[in-house]
Amino acid sequence: MKEQIVKLIVGNLVEIIPELSEGSVSLDETFVDMGANSIDRAELIMLTLERLDLEVSRIEFVSAQTVNELADLIIQKQQR
């Protein structure tokens, strides 16, 4: 399950920042270090939640700084 969520997040990140490619995204590098500004990071959370049809307040994902962290947090919220 995590694998699919990670794939979705990476796909969304590349869609938001066209300069990135799926191969260049590191799962443990921070979004900031990959060149995502504040609006890109917010868009990543929005798009990912929308595509998972997950109706959870966006503010609950503010602590996620990397692809892995965001995926783990999503799984945690899905199981709740």
Partner: peptide
């Protein structure tokens, strides 16, 4: 600031 952006969207 990140929290504020997300809260604005919510």
């Amino acid at each position: 600031a990140d929290l504020s952006l997300l809260s604005y969207l919510d």
